[in-house]
Design a protein around this nucleic acid. Structure first.
Lengths: 209, 209, 209, 209
DNA sequence: AATGAATGAGGGTTCATTCAT
DNA sequence: AATGAATGAACCCTCATTCAT
């Protein structure tokens, strides 16, 4: 069992590396096989379609990511502190080695835009995707109940929107940083932390304006 | 001469339509030729490489876009009002027919990520890209000078970051709305307008906190 | 026009030769291209799927065949003489160079048994297939009306059956003769002619027994 | 020993089922292994080449078939009655469950046409194939000697030819009935029985014309 | 002995690009 | 100048067969 799992993991890792570096389309099954040190047919044994390999890689990435947010969600901090932690997690992601993860995710969103897949395949991914949103919503709810966040119900919707846009932007910027030659300015970590302060301030005081 | 120009425009339009709908990679030169009502070889006469056609289409899109911001920049309003107008322009873009333009741009950012091109080709695009940023910066500068915006120099950097993130997020969301099956929640126009109010409020009052 | 037609014919001929010699499955598109002296992509330009090439080859074969029977059908001979001519045509086919044609047809029947195709593709072939049967039926009808054939209505059905079986067997034997190593005895032309005499005798006299 | 034999039989049966339904080429060794409930490697232990498995399946089919004819041949009936029985056997075959057997045989004839095998492998099959012919010949001989059949020596050759053609056609029609979408008319059992009567009549009376 | 794992050779098909008219 | 025709390189995927346990 561990051997089989090992081989599979080897291929997934090879695929992940190549997908991250060259993108899904430019990475051929043959190259993945070579990188993993196996034959092409072996790759197809484990992932009968390229699509399936892509899906599995993306799932892996997401599944590494979500627990961090879940851990925060399930902690005993105040809602406000949860949001603080969540935003930190976002920001740290793009400076860490796991930045690759975000690049892959971002890339995938583009990929499916023009390579639609059968629903069942992507279902699980979408499930996990929304999980993060629910976690954010929940943190806000928690904060409202424990008094650490004060937002009217309209403001609450806005807060979600804002945080979503923030997440979107962070991920996109992480992706942009892939491009060695891009000129779109990448925000520094300090700038992002400043922005975080602003957002937290908003969560705390919005309704007091 | 107008005939030649016409033919070229016809091809560009065909390409743009197809690129927007099917993406750069899935759109073949043959389909573009068909859509434009010319032969493939003709397309290659005008655009010797697919890359070049892509570049020209993207340039066209950007060049339609920038003047709107430039017009605002060159108007006689206060810096604050310029920012107001700029944010409006952003927001309106994604609900208008020109949403297609944003989709194309976003798509292009992914495309070059994995299909790096010779610098000279993309140079002009990057030039134009940064132009918008400079316009934003300028508007803020103007506002500070005319007193309609009050930001310390640190805050000013933050403001630029924030507005960049805002732009990034808006564009990404416009792209997401392409995906019929995506679950990532698209913000409503109202939510975006609320967010705009917040940003403007920040520009006005940041330094007074 | 004639040039394009020529190229297409060249490929069809190459395909036909190879299909006849090696069968549909063992003949690759690449080999066909080589045999025709063109690139693979060119073959695909004219026949976007291998299936379509197969269909066209088979159609060509059938269309060469049917007119012979139609000519007989439309001639002014008595029904009996038509049958005589039809049987002759059958028999001559398997000894002539056109024996290849029958091999191909027979091979095709096997091919579609396990490679079912979309109806519209095979429709035309089936149409033509049944045409021969209708011609036989018509010849018998003609013979009955002009008195050259005497069959009761039951016998008429039998006659059709018999002639169908005869046709089936002839074709199958022609195919068998492909197999250099086959031991199934191939009937000689003389034997077939004898059999023809029997069948004609039956047509003339059946109802008089 | 019985265990080994059992396993082997299981594989043969699985192969036979799949070969009949999907053809030799479209049936993979893996599917056979699955259907037989063993590993692929095991199939290859017993049948080192796919060819060998095909041969064995075909042999099995033939060996089920021939004894029926042999039984008739060795019975004490008149030659005429033997022929009657032989024709009945043929006809019944194609309506019975054993129709599958004929489909397989027919399929095999096409298969070897384009996948020639080493002589020794097919030798046995050809031996058995001709056995049926010899049985028919023998029955006719018997009939001539016991007076139940009257044919001159030329007629005797014709009779063999006719009966061969009859057998060929019957088998081919059985195969055709596989094809759900075929339009070639399948003769009914009644029509075949009528034809049988004719043939028997011929055997009895040919020389009296 | 039995088996799942591994694989290379090969097949159909696509597409940017070049050629020839 | 305009174009349809031509094409090789590359891609995804399959399968009989061998290997290692």
């Amino acid at each position: 069992m561990p051997y089989k799992q090992l081989k599979k993991q080897q291929m997934l890792s090879a695929a992940r590396r190549l997908f991250t570096e060259y993108g899904f389309e430019k990475t051929t099954m043959q190259k993945i096989a070579d990188e993993a040190g196996v034959g092409v047919a072996t790759v197809f044994r484990y992932f009968p379609k390229k699509e399936l390999l892509i899906i599995e890689v993306v799932k892996e990435v997401i599944e590494e990511m979500v627990p961090r947010f879940e851990a925060i969600s399930e902690s005993t901090q105040s809602g406000y502190d949860k949001m603080d932690a969540i935003l930190d997690a976002y920001i740290n992601y793009i400076s860490s080695a796991n930045r690759d993860a975000i690049i892959l995710l971002e890339s995938f969103e583009y990929y499916i835009a023009y390579n639609p897949m059968e629903e069942p395949l992507t279902e699980e991914i979408y499930q996990t995707y929304t999980k993060v949103e629910r976690i954010i919503d929940q943190a806000i709810q928690d904060g409202i109940q424990d008094g650490s966040i004060s937002l009217s119900s309209t403001e609450q919707m806005n807060a979600t929107t804002i945080l979503n846009l923030f997440g979107t932007a962070i991920k996109k910027h992480a992706f942009n940083s892939l491009l060695s030659n891009v000129i779109v300015p990448i925000p520094t970590k300090e700038q992002l932390l400043q922005l975080k302060s602003m957002l937290l301030l908003y969560l705390k005081n919005a309704s007091r304006h």
